[in-house]
Write a protein that binds this DNA or RNA. Sequence first.
RNA 1: GGCUCCAUGGUCAAGCGGUUAAGACAUCGCCCUUUCACGGCGGUAACACUGGUUCGAUUCCCGUUGGAGUCACCA
Length: 484
Amino acid sequence: MKIRTRYAPSPTGRMHVGNLRSALYEFLIAKHEGGSFMLRIEDTDQERYVEGATEIIYRTLEKAGLKHDEGPDKDGGYGPYVQSERIKTGIYMKYAKELIEKGEAYYCFCDKERLASLKTEVVEGKEITIYDKHCLSLSKEEVEANLAAGRPFVIRQNNPSEGTTTFHDELYGDITVENAELDDMILIKSDGFPTYNFANVVDDHTMDITHVVRGNEYLSSAPKYTRLYEAFGWEPPKYVHLPLVTDVNHKKLAKRGGSTSFEDLLEQGFLTEAIVNFIALLGWSPESNREIFTLDELIQEFDYHRISKSPTVFDLVKLRWMNSEYIKAMDFDAFYGMAEPYLKKAITKELDLKKIAAMVKTRIEVFPDIVEMVDFFEALPEYDTAMYTHKKMKTNSETSLEVLREILPLLEAQEDYSNDALYATLAGYVEQKGCKNGYVMWPIRTAVSGKQTTPAGATEIMEILGKEESLARIRRGIELLQSA
RNA sequence: GGCUCCAUGGUCAAGCGGUUAAGACAUCGCCCUUUCACGGCGGUAACACUGGUUCGAUUCCCGUUGGAGUCACCA
């Protein structure tokens, strides 16, 4: 049978990398086998709905290259694909009533106060409630009367209090729990909407989803879903619970706080290809040692049996490295297109930005790095003369002053300020002086940049700066060294 | 706290009874070099702890410890 997977987000904001990874794995599992990948919007919680969040989902999936075969915008015969629209078809209520008929569910009229009285206070301020099946004992007549009186109700799953329930996960194997541990969770809320727990099962089944792929925070509720499948007499799908993605403190990535949504990363200057590549490796590894993959290559390679079980720390440092790899591999024009805004942010003077871009291309990890790297072209920063001292170059304030003084007339006389010509001049000086290259290059580069590190050598910098500015900066260097 | 899951270097992670326990990021050192960077080379660094099973456990089983998740009319 053809594999069908689905990504079923709720429109509550930006997609963090954990969600995106779920979507990616769902996509890859389907595509690896030539199956289809579906998008379903889970908006049964009207209170949490965030305006524009659905658009973010579309935009993110599209940017990441995760094209869905079916979805709200692409009917594949299993629609509607938005739960709030599915509600209108009456499907959830119909199935809930079927369960009531079977004795697998029941009406519950308990109000908030009674529920609150069931709460048991436990550590960390967490309140735990186990419903006591109070309304299960209501007679058919009592239920009818309550319904007729218009009393608000919910529909609850009726779980057995004895025995065990076992389900199979493709990665975690068989997991068994005591039925007594299973709370009678709410299937239909008092507003008539289904809960996620119920809608999910009904939708996955009626939409012929073959592989339910989701984060393992759902592992503990999976037995209840299994009970639902059993109650309906439906064949459960294959489950693939994904290891958790955590922050550096090993805590589950929060939707709020932290800046690990896909869009945040984009804003921080990461490339979509690098992000996708990186999150593919968050909990999965290929057979080979390769790490750089295009999406198509991932489809080829992705075997979900190689997904690991232990949680994964989202390591921004390694993402930065991977991003730098992608930047280095970028076509120059494409790179320039993305780099230009940052170059212009740092430089307003008429300088050769393309040349500067080329310098910076192999040295940045994310685009915003550019600003700090090239701002010295715009204006010579304040700097400490201590920078002229470098033990490996065998330079210090005195030697630098001497070199700059001696080199100044040569540069003043020089007409050709191309990198090669400048280098030839300096090399000639070095030879005549009988010293190491760095002995003269270090002070010049320092004088001309005022920086400890630069994206290029002294002569390249002078070529871009031009004669006038280069000389001014060297004179300034001499001035500083003299007064020091 | 109950339940569930997880456990190889700082991080990701290979390994699926016998290995000098890969590789990547980070870190450190060296080389190269028109500084730094890039690049090249190399180093430091791990099987959480007990018992078992076995001729032999990182690998299988039990327990301990540690970590995480979950316990809503949220998804």
